[in-house]
Simulated scan of single mutants.
Amino acid sequence: MAEIIDTGKEPEAALARACAVLADGLPVAIPTETVYGLAADATNPQAIARIYEMKGRPRFNPLICHVSDFEMADQHVDFDPLSRWLAEAFWPGPLTLILPLKADSTVHALASAGLDTLGVRMPDGFSRGVIARFGRPLAAPSANTSGKISPTTAAHVEADLGDRLTLILDAGPSGIGLESTIIKVEGGEIHLLRPGGLDVAAIEGLTGKKVLRPETAGAIIEAPGMLASHYAPVAGVRLNATEASPDEALIRFGGAALPGEDAAALVLDLSATGDLSEAAANLFAFMKQADASGAATIAFGSIPMEGLGEAINDRIERAAAPRGGASS
Rank of each mutant, 00 (worst) to 15 (best):
E3K: 12
E3A: 00
I4L: 13
D6G: 00
T7H: 00
T7A: 04
A13F: 02
R17M: 01
A18N: 06
V21T: 09
L22C: 10
L22W: 13
A29C: 09
I30Q: 00
P31Y: 10
Y36F: 13
A39Q: 04
D41K: 08
N44Y: 09
Q46A: 15
A47C: 03
R50A: 13
Y52K: 08
E53Q: 13
P58M: 15
R59F: 12
R59N: 07
R59Y: 10
N61S: 11
C65E: 01
V67F: 01
V67Y: 05
S68C: 12
F79Y: 14
P81L: 12
S83Q: 10
W85L: 14
A87H: 04
A89D: 03
F90V: 11
W91Q: 08
P92W: 07
L101W: 01
L101T: 11
K102R: 15
A103K: 14
T106K: 15
V107H: 04
A111M: 04
S112E: 04
A113H: 10
A113K: 10
L118D: 07
L118Y: 07
R121A: 08
D124L: 03
S127T: 10
G129K: 11
V130T: 06
I131D: 00
I131R: 05
G135D: 08
R136L: 06
S142F: 03
S146W: 04
G147P: 05
K148A: 02
T153L: 05
T153E: 05
E158N: 05
E158P: 00
E158K: 12
D160P: 02
G162S: 11
A171L: 05
G172R: 06
G172C: 09
G172A: 08
G177W: 02
L178F: 02
E179R: 11
E179H: 07
E179L: 07
E179C: 05
I183S: 07
I183Q: 01
E186Q: 15
E186V: 13
L193I: 06
R194I: 08
P195R: 06
G196I: 12
G197M: 02
D199N: 13
A202Q: 15
I203D: 06
I203V: 14
E204W: 06
E204T: 01
E204C: 07
T207S: 15
R213H: 07
T216V: 15
A219P: 03
I220A: 11
I220Y: 10
I221M: 10
E222Q: 15
E222S: 14
M226L: 11
S229Q: 14
H230R: 10
V234S: 05
V234F: 01
G236W: 06
R238D: 03
R238F: 04
N240P: 04
T242D: 14
E243R: 15
P246K: 14
D247H: 09
E248R: 03
L250V: 09
L250H: 02
P259Q: 08
G260V: 13
D262S: 14
A263H: 01
V267L: 11
L268D: 04
L270C: 00
A272G: 13
T273K: 15
E278N: 02
A279N: 00
A280F: 01
L283E: 08
F284L: 05
F284N: 05
F286N: 08
K288H: 13
A290C: 01
A292H: 07
G294D: 00
I298S: 01
I303L: 01
I303D: 04
I303T: 02
G307A: 12
N313E: 00
R315H: 05
I316S: 03
P322T: 11
R323Y: 12
R323N: 07
G325I: 10
